[in-house]
Design a protein around this nucleic acid. Structure first.
Length: 254
DNA sequence: CGGCTTTGACCAGCGC
DNA sequence: GCGCTGGTCAAAGCCG
């Protein structure tokens, strides 16, 4: 946990989003690929990653707190662990990897809310906190954005959703984290040449969002901010695990 | 034709 | 009240 570098304390880049940070306990150690580079399932190579926080699908965390690629668990780590694992190990691994939903993160939400208050003064305009605390769910927020009837009369406090940010040194803005995303907006950001892109998870019941932008200081670094927790399994991870699970079920009969 | 991206417009919140 | 900024919507266009 000490290995996690808190972005809010580390950078003074005004173009970056400010939001609450909270520590996440390290997951069970997973076998990972060499840290020098990682080839993603979309064929892109990503350099060494600097982890600021765990993403929701952070199933590839190294015991020392560093990740080697957003989707290594599906493509690399799981197969590497296969020979030595018992079925019980697989149960815990699946829980760790699939994150449906991760109870640890849910428990951290009050802490996130507390941190939100702590960081509210550092936010450029408090917009993130405002969106979190408006008392409106996303649908209500959408109604408010339209400015029509149904606008909430008061401003209640909305429950905070967990947020995670991590930096990736990559030429590719879009990191393949195993989930499908639909872009719904792009904004030019103050003090940054590069725009910020807004994505939503395409799963119909999932409300997770992410923001992607490049660091103003170092444009080779992509900052990805996740908001919320997926309420469904990672599709690509499931694809990778299904044949293995079937094999395990077969073997467990003996 | 469905799913996705692009992009201009709109709205809320904040500071002055 | 006004201007600035971030977040979101939704129409239009693109693509497989």
């Amino acid at each position: 946990m000490e290995n996690l570098q808190l972005q809010g304390d580390d950078h003074d880049d005004e173009a970056l989003p400010h939001f609450p940070y909270f520590a996440v306990p390290s997951p069970p150690p997973l076998a990972v690929a060499p840290a020098a580079s990682a080839t993603t399932s979309d064929g892109h190579q990503h350099g060494p990653l600097e982890v600021l926080e765990q993403p929701p699908c952070s199933n590839n965390l190294h015991p020392d707190g560093l990740v080697d690629g957003p989707q290594l668990a599906a493509t690399t780590a799981v197969p590497m662990m296969l020979p030595a694992m018992t079925s019980l190990d697989w149960q815990s691994l699946l829980q760790t990897c699939l994150q449906v939903p991760p109870p640890v993160l849910e428990q951290q939400q009050p802490a996130a809310a507390a941190q939100a208050d702590q960081y509210s003064g550092e936010n450029d305009h408090g917009d993130l906190q405002a969106a979190e605390s408006s008392g409106a769910g996303n649908k209500e927020k959408q109604v408010m954005a339209k400015g029509g009837a149904g606008r909430p009369s008061g401003t209640k406090k909305k429950a905070s959703r967990p947020r995670f940010a991590f930096q990736t040194r990559s030429d590719n803005d879009i990191l393949d984290d195993g989930y499908r995303w639909r872009k719904y907006g792009q904004k030019a950001v103050k003090n940054s040449k590069h725009p910020r892109s807004y994505y939503r998870c395409t799963h119909h019941t999932c409300n997770v969002k992410k923001q992607v932008q490049r660091l103003a200081k170092d444009t080779s670094i992509v900052v990805t901010t996740y908001e919320g927790v997926h309420n469904h399994p990672c599709e690509k991870l499931m694809e990778a695990l299904t044949p293995i699970l079937k094999q395990l079920q077969f073997l467990s009969q003996f």
